[in-house]
Simulated assay, not measured.
Amino acid sequence: MSSKPHRDSRRISKPVGFSIVETGTSSMQVYEVADERNATPAQISLAWLLHKDVVDAPIIGPRSLDHLAENMDAITITLTDDEIARLEEPIFPQWPVKGKN
């Protein structure tokens, strides 16, 4: 399989399904931890899931062998207690949003 992705080879795209209202967290926290760890947001998300006692095997849907290899690299990431706390810290939307009255 592949090693961790190089910083310039990471795919950065807008996360699908992440919503501050639905999850209580901000995808920005995922991106920040990913950047600090030289990992992809997908790897950090999967690593977080693997730290949960109730998750035995997260369901992933890779579209290519490269995506599968990237996802599998998540098992090598051990998040710190601080990182987990940051990922789980709820962020509540502020209404009204400035500039969108």
Results as ranks from 00 to 15, higher is better:
Pro58Cys: 11
Thr78Arg: 15
Glu83Val: 12
Asp73Lys: 14
Ile75Ala: 00
Val97Phe: 08
Leu46Cys: 04
Ala47Tyr: 03
Asp66Ser: 15
Ala57Pro: 01
Thr25Leu: 09
Met1Pro: 14
Asp8His: 08
Thr40Met: 06
Glu32Met: 13
Arg10Ile: 05
Leu87Phe: 11
Thr40Ala: 11
Thr40Tyr: 10
Ile75Gln: 03
Asp8Phe: 10
Arg86Thr: 13
Thr76Arg: 14
Tyr31Ser: 00
Thr40Arg: 11
Val30Pro: 02
Ser26Gly: 05
Glu83Leu: 11
Leu65Phe: 10
Lys100Gln: 12
Leu46Arg: 07
Ala85Cys: 04
Glu22Gly: 00
Ala39Trp: 01
Arg37Tyr: 09
Trp48Leu: 08
Thr23Met: 14
Gly99Tyr: 13
Ala47Asp: 01
Thr80Ala: 06
Phe18Lys: 12
Glu88Thr: 15
Phe18Met: 12
Gln94Lys: 12
Leu68Thr: 10
Arg10Val: 06
Val16Ala: 03
Lys100Ala: 08
Thr40Asp: 02
Pro58Thr: 14
Ala42Tyr: 08
Ile75Leu: 06
Ser9Leu: 08
Asp56Phe: 10
Ser27Phe: 04
Pro62Ser: 07
Ile12Gly: 02
Ser2Val: 13
Thr23Ile: 10
Ser13Asp: 02
Ser64Asn: 09
Pro41Met: 01
Ala47Gly: 06
Lys100His: 12
Asn101Asp: 10
Glu88Lys: 14
Val16Trp: 07
Trp95Met: 13
Glu88Pro: 12
Asn38Trp: 04
Met72Thr: 06
Gly17Phe: 12
Pro5Ser: 06
Pro58Tyr: 09
Val33Trp: 07
Pro90Ile: 01
Pro5Arg: 11
Tyr31Leu: 03
Val55Tyr: 09
Lys98Val: 01
Ser19Asp: 07
Trp95Lys: 14
Asp8Val: 15
Asp8Lys: 13
Glu83His: 05
Leu46Gln: 04
Met28Ile: 09
Gly61Gln: 02
Lys100Met: 13
Asp35Thr: 06
Trp95Asn: 09
Ile77Gly: 00
Gly17Pro: 04
Ile12Tyr: 03
Asn71Gly: 00
Leu87Ala: 06
Ile60Phe: 09
Gly99Met: 12
Phe92Asn: 09
Val21Ile: 12
Gly99His: 09
Asp82Tyr: 11
Met28Asp: 05
Arg11His: 04
Lys100Glu: 12
Arg86Lys: 15
Leu65Ser: 10
Gly24Pro: 14
Ile59Pro: 08
Thr40Asn: 05
Gln29Arg: 15
Gln29Asp: 10
Ser3Pro: 03
Phe92Gly: 00
Asp35Tyr: 06
Gly99Glu: 10
Met72Asp: 00
Ala34Thr: 00
Met72Arg: 07
Arg63Asn: 07
Ile91Lys: 13
Arg10His: 08
Ser9Glu: 14
Ala34Gln: 01
Lys14Ser: 04
Val55Arg: 05
Glu83Tyr: 08
Ala39Asn: 02
Gly24Met: 12
Arg10Lys: 15
Pro15Leu: 14
Ala69Gln: 09
Phe18His: 07
Leu87Gln: 01
Arg7Val: 09
Met72Val: 15
Met28Ala: 04
Ile12Glu: 04
Ser26Pro: 05
Val97Tyr: 08
Ser13Pro: 01
Ala34Met: 04
Gln43Ser: 13
